[in-house]
Computed example of a mutant assay.
Amino acid sequence: MKVIEAASFGGPEVLVAREEPEPNAGPGEVVVRVAAVDTLFVDTRIRSGWGGEFFGITAPYIPGGGLSGEVIAAGDGVPEDLVGSRVATYTNGLGGKGGYAERVAVSADAVIPLPDEVGLNDAASLIHDGVTGMRLMENVAIKPGERVLVVGATGGMGILLVQLARAAGAQVIAAARGAEKLKLARELGADVTVDYSEPGWAERVLEATGGHGADVVLDGVGDEIGRAAFDATAEGGRFSAHGATISGFTELDPQEVERRRVTLYGIGDVQLDLAERQRLAAAALAEVAAGRLRPVIGKTFPLSDAAGAHTAIENRAVIGKVLILP
């Protein structure tokens, strides 16, 4: 079967195709025929060599930490009726690799059955972003009428956060780059949109909240954009610095955070074990099945063009999710 391997750390060109033996289902495992692989900005960062202290991945490796597909074989100790099921699953435990392949063997305990109403592409798009989005909503506990700033509002997770915050009864302020992205944010339910590529955008957030600032900030971008978003956070607000799509996570002065009585959440607050991921994934899938949540898949790429998928993400050439379809 075909797999895509990052032969070394570097640019998208290090992603190369090779052949590998078909996987077998060992005891407690299933083999999944892969339909769609979630592709994240962080995957491109890991491929470039960033984040070794967080993820412990060494090259060469096969990227891809989450996917959807159909169970085609079951090993000893796995109920046979699981064969033929449509599932979403994590690969390699929670190690974040192995999914850029036509078929994968995974622990049967890692698979999440899909509701009939949820397509395989939508399911793959939720395996990470849906889980993190649902946990963020639990962390910040939005109350009706609060002002919520979503930074990076048209990325895969930002799209979900705009909808979830709106459903919680918040006034949603969506921050993104460019008119096309802001238009999508409004279509998803944002009350106010601001372009964070323009100088003084944080002041416009303050203006939109009558000078109060955002009660909740969900920062999916980081670095100087996140720092500006902190300036627009209300006294006593909540700030989640979970994103790093520029060069790093938002770094804040602890004394300033304390002085302004801001409750701070970071990437550690969305590091979850398998049971929690499955619980939150099931919750996100249920929201999609009920029609209350809509992923936006901007573009798909064949497995053979995984490098193209990474290039599109790095160039910010796609609005919404990027998926790889073996």
Rank of each mutant, 00 (worst) to 15 (best):
M1K: 05
V3A: 10
I4W: 03
F9Q: 15
F9V: 13
V14Y: 04
R18E: 12
R18M: 11
E19V: 14
E19F: 15
E20L: 12
P21R: 14
E22A: 15
E22L: 15
P23Y: 12
N24Q: 11
P27F: 07
P27R: 06
V31I: 13
V32N: 02
R33G: 08
V42E: 01
V42W: 00
D43P: 02
T44P: 02
R45K: 12
R47F: 01
R47Y: 07
S48V: 13
G51Y: 08
G69M: 02
E70R: 05
V71L: 01
A74K: 02
G77L: 02
V87D: 01
T89I: 04
T91V: 10
N92H: 14
N92D: 15
G96T: 00
G96K: 01
A105W: 05
S107M: 10
D109N: 13
V111F: 02
P115L: 08
P115H: 07
V118N: 01
L120T: 03
N121G: 15
L126Q: 03
I127Y: 01
D129I: 00
D129P: 00
G130C: 06
G130F: 03
G130N: 05
V131G: 01
M134S: 11
R135Y: 01
R135T: 07
R135F: 06
L136M: 12
E138Y: 00
K143Y: 10
G145N: 07
E146R: 02
R147S: 13
M157L: 14
I159F: 04
I159M: 06
L160Y: 05
L161M: 14
L164Y: 00
R166V: 00
R166P: 00
A167R: 08
G169Y: 02
A176S: 15
A176C: 13
R177T: 14
K181E: 06
K183S: 10
A185F: 06
D191H: 14
V194Y: 03
S197Q: 00
E203N: 15
E203T: 13
V205W: 09
G211I: 06
G213S: 12
A214N: 08
V216Y: 03
V216I: 14
L218T: 00
L218S: 02
G222Q: 11
G222V: 11
G222L: 10
D223F: 03
R227W: 11
G237R: 07
R238C: 10
S240K: 01
S240H: 11
G243N: 03
G243L: 04
P254W: 14
R260P: 05
G266S: 09
I267S: 09
L272S: 03
L272A: 01
E276F: 13
E276L: 15
R277S: 04
A282D: 08
A284C: 06
A284E: 04
V288W: 05
A289Q: 07
A290H: 08
A290P: 05
G291V: 08
R292H: 10
P295A: 06
I297N: 05
G298N: 08
K299V: 09
T300P: 06
F301H: 05
D305E: 09
A306N: 09
A312W: 12
V318L: 07
V318C: 04
I319V: 15
L323F: 12
P326Q: 04
